[in-house]
Amino acid sequence: MEEIKEPVQLSLGNGKLNPAAAGFSRTPLHAFENLPQGVRHGWRTKRWEYWGVLTPDLVLGMTIAHLDYTATLQLYVFERATGKEISSDPLSIPPGSTAVLPGTLPPLTALGTMGGLHLRFHDDDGGTHLRAESERVGVELYAPAAGDVLGVVVPWSDTRYQYTLKDVAREVSGTVTVDGRQYPVGEGAFAVLDRGRGRWPYSRRWNWAAGYGTSAGTRLGLQLGGMWTEGTPATENALIVNGVLHHFDAELEFSYDLTDPQAPWHVRGDWLEATLTPFHRRLAATNVVAVASKTWQAFGEWSGWAAAPDGTRYDLGGVQGWIEEARNRW
């Protein structure tokens, strides 16, 4: 894939994919001001900001999404010591102004309010403030920006295309309050941003995996994807070593058993032999009006190895993260 090095609009004025936008980048360089929306364009535009946070105490997921004909927020918390799960996913039809997702280059402020849940992700010059408030959960976190990210445009056609930005190697600090109990967040915690903007087919499946940790004094970030990029020139596969991105073009092989929540998940390729052993697996499902989704997401510890293009192998022991299969009709 070609590396994008200058700011570019994802879409042309007529709503089709801008050919100059196809490729990958190490910083957020794509803007979305020409992305078409609404019934005249078939309700195919999907926009979201997802932040996942893993700490020694908690798993946290927060999403602000606008799916053209609807908007939704999601807040998920898992207490690792108790096994308690809290999940809130209000949905608004029509979307109105319940989810605000800017189309400009960062710094961005994304926010959403509905169903007693309020989410706000606000960039400053040095990182991102993550805030959530619901009846049972309060989140006040800060994730400093640190090193390269992976931005990729996946071109299914000139009318169906997706920009994804995965920032998988951010440390994070602050507090999360769950049912009145305050958890400090700091050492051993990391945050991942998944930003999506594009024009989707109605039905699509994908694998996604992320990880972050320190192995033998080296900071490693792991970003892996599959299924949804097959048949295109794009992949979202990368290894980040001490903040430096290494992007890989070849597809990876994912293997796992969805019938067994405790079974390991495996990912293999020319530069990677990785296994995630779960401490928890979540099954999230939605079936409302035209939106139907099912996601199996496993959280755990990575093992195995990943190699940089120069042949240096890195042990993945000590890297924490997650892996998922998602099936969407939207």
Score class of each variant (00 low, 15 high):
residue 92 S to D: 03
residue 156 W to I: 04
residue 77 V to A: 06
residue 42 G to F: 00
residue 139 V to R: 03
residue 148 D to I: 03
residue 223 Q to I: 13
residue 188 G to D: 02
residue 195 R to E: 09
residue 225 G to V: 07
residue 253 E to L: 10
residue 99 A to N: 06
residue 268 R to N: 05
residue 67 L to M: 11
residue 265 W to K: 02
residue 319 V to E: 10
residue 43 W to H: 09
residue 8 V to C: 08
residue 125 D to L: 13
residue 131 R to G: 00
residue 237 N to L: 12
residue 325 E to W: 06
residue 22 A to M: 12
residue 257 D to W: 14
residue 250 A to H: 13
residue 228 W to F: 09
residue 95 P to C: 05
residue 280 H to Q: 14
residue 214 T to D: 12
residue 70 T to M: 10
residue 12 L to R: 15
residue 160 R to G: 06
residue 110 A to R: 10
residue 24 F to L: 08
residue 272 L to C: 07
residue 4 I to D: 01
residue 292 A to N: 03
residue 246 H to F: 10
residue 57 D to C: 09
residue 274 A to C: 06
residue 206 W to F: 08
residue 30 H to W: 15
residue 30 H to G: 07
residue 259 T to N: 14
residue 57 D to F: 06
residue 168 V to D: 09
residue 180 G to R: 04
residue 72 T to R: 12
residue 328 N to M: 13
residue 250 A to M: 05
residue 283 L to T: 13
residue 322 W to V: 05
residue 308 A to N: 09
residue 186 G to H: 07
residue 53 V to N: 02
residue 160 R to Q: 03
residue 181 R to V: 04
residue 9 Q to M: 01
residue 207 N to I: 00
residue 169 A to N: 12
residue 265 W to D: 09
residue 49 E to S: 07
residue 146 A to V: 02
residue 318 G to H: 07
residue 57 D to S: 07
residue 310 D to Q: 13
residue 49 E to N: 10
residue 101 L to D: 06
residue 26 R to N: 11
residue 157 S to N: 05
residue 293 S to I: 12
residue 239 L to F: 05
residue 25 S to F: 08
residue 6 E to V: 14
residue 95 P to I: 10
residue 275 T to H: 08
residue 219 R to T: 12
residue 155 P to T: 09
residue 24 F to Q: 04
residue 122 H to S: 06
residue 170 R to F: 06
residue 187 E to K: 15
residue 309 P to K: 14
residue 213 G to V: 06
residue 156 W to P: 00
residue 318 G to Q: 02
residue 258 L to W: 11
residue 109 T to P: 08
residue 309 P to N: 11
residue 241 V to K: 05
residue 280 H to F: 15
residue 281 R to N: 01
residue 204 R to H: 15
residue 244 V to W: 07
residue 280 H to K: 15
residue 175 T to G: 12
residue 238 A to S: 09
residue 149 V to Q: 02
residue 130 L to Y: 08
residue 48 W to P: 01
residue 292 A to S: 11
residue 216 A to Y: 07
residue 109 T to H: 02
residue 116 G to Q: 00
residue 119 L to I: 13
residue 257 D to K: 14
residue 166 K to Q: 01
residue 184 P to Q: 07
residue 128 T to F: 06
residue 30 H to L: 12
residue 22 A to S: 05
residue 93 I to R: 12
residue 193 L to G: 14
residue 229 T to Q: 10
residue 299 F to T: 08
residue 247 H to P: 09
residue 172 V to T: 04
residue 32 F to K: 01
residue 164 T to M: 08
residue 1 M to D: 05
residue 202 Y to M: 09
residue 318 G to K: 00
residue 221 G to R: 03
residue 234 A to V: 13
residue 127 G to R: 14
residue 36 P to L: 07
residue 226 G to H: 09
residue 242 N to L: 15
residue 42 G to D: 08
residue 199 R to K: 15
residue 318 G to W: 13
residue 190 F to D: 02
residue 164 T to P: 04
residue 31 A to G: 14
residue 58 L to I: 13
residue 209 A to V: 02
residue 51 W to M: 03
residue 248 F to C: 11
residue 181 R to D: 07
residue 110 A to W: 02
residue 254 F to L: 11
residue 83 G to C: 08
residue 59 V to P: 00
residue 92 S to Q: 15
residue 30 H to I: 08
residue 99 A to K: 01
residue 25 S to D: 15
residue 81 A to H: 01
residue 131 R to F: 02
residue 129 H to E: 05
residue 83 G to W: 00
residue 140 E to Y: 06
